[in-house]
């Protein structure tokens, strides 16, 4: 009952939010929330720490920007193109990276994404240091004008909800259960007859594609695809969002993304302080509350209720 009420409340808040907050801020937060959720699918449910997710966000941003501005494709096709590009890249990266585990996996994804960064810096169509600027937003399906701030907000919200539902369904499907089994004990999953490498690769591609979708949507919002999107700092930020909100929870990354974007917004003038504070949050999170905000809150609620719940209680 409480669950249904809070869900309805969340939907109402999401629908009226643009009348109370600056829509661009909300849209940015939603894009990053989707990005963090996609990342969390890999870290929280398969136990793979990728340090190169910026590559998927950024490459999708560039492909979307290029197809909107230069090829003149409509927004829906451009986003599809961006998402597809990220998925293909994810297939390649995943194929290479799942050969190693744990720390090596993180280093390999980081190095591969750095390769994408240098490619974006040098390739002719990415605009180098300037990036792709003044990308038109266009008309969705030919008649919905995305230049209207409010229309765009609901479009971004719809994209976020779609992505979030895909992740939710994945986690709660038999496929998702195998992923969790791999996270808990990979040798055992193998001995049970699962081809864990294939499962890991599929999860990786899905995560990359959804990260790409977040990047493509972000390009529409800011009308910009730049090197910031592919820099490893971005990969670090998505790790931070997930860790702060709570990895392995469905709402944690959303909370983390909103918090991190808020911090960035308020401290933008203070220059390096954003980096210092982000570093500090990392340290505090790892040392003091590893389950993140949502994870700790859930643990607290469980303790108060004093009744054993399923191991993976989903809000």
């Amino acid at each position: 009952m409480i669950r249904i009420i809070s869900l309805v409340a969340l939907i109402i808040i999401a629908l009226v939010a643009p009348f109370f907050f600056y829509p661009v801020f909300l849209m940015k937060a939603l894009c990053f929330a989707l990005f963090a959720c996609a990342f969390n699918l890999l870290l929280g449910y398969v136990g793979l720490l990728s340090f190169g997710h910026a590559a998927f966000l950024g490459s999708a941003a560039y492909v979307t920007g290029h197809s909107m501005k230069v090829l003149g494709l409509p927004p829906e096709l451009s986003i599809l193109a961006g998402t597809g590009a990220a998925a293909l890249l994810g297939l390649g990266f995943g194929w290479l990276a799942i050969r190693r585990q744990g720390i090596y996996f993180a280093m390999i994804t980081l190095a591969l994404s750095q390769m994408v960064f240098f490619f974006a810096l040098q390739a002719p169509f990415t605009g180098g240091e300037d990036g792709i600027q003044a990308i038109p937003r266009g008309y969705l399906l030919g008649f919905i004008d995305l230049n209207n701030q409010l229309t765009l907000y609901y479009f971004v919200l719809a994209m976020f909800v779609f992505g979030w539902l895909v992740i939710y369904r994945t986690i709660h499907s038999p496929f998702g259960q195998v992923l969790k089994a791999i996270r808990e004990n990979e040798p055992r999953a193998i001995s049970l007859g699962y081809r864990t490498d294939q499962y890991k690769l599929m999860a990786f591609v899905l995560s990359a594609a959804l990260s790409g979708m977040a990047g493509a949507t972000k390009t529409l919002v800011f009308q910009l695809a730049s090197l910031t999107d592919v820099h490893w700092h971005m990969s670090g930020e998505v790790v931070l969002m997930t860790l702060l909100g709570g990895m392995g929870t469905v709402f944690g990354p959303v909370v983390g993304a909103f918090l991190v974007v808020t911090i960035q917004n308020y401290l933008a003038q203070l220059g390096s302080w954003v980096t210092i504070i982000q570093g500090g949050i990392f340290v505090v999170c790892v040392l003091l509350f590893r389950r993140g905000i949502v994870g700790e809150a859930m643990a607290l609620a469980r303790k108060l209720r004093k009744k054993p719940e399923k191991e993976d209680a989903v809000s």
Binding site: T275, Q278, G279, I281, C285
Partner: peptide
């Protein structure tokens, strides 16, 4: 992985401070 995350945070902290 927590060691990696902690040292990454420390790297951000130190570099931000020097910057």
């Amino acid at each position: 992985l927590y060691g990696l995350l902690l040292t990454f945070g420390l790297a951000l902290l130190i570099e931000g401070a020097f910057r």
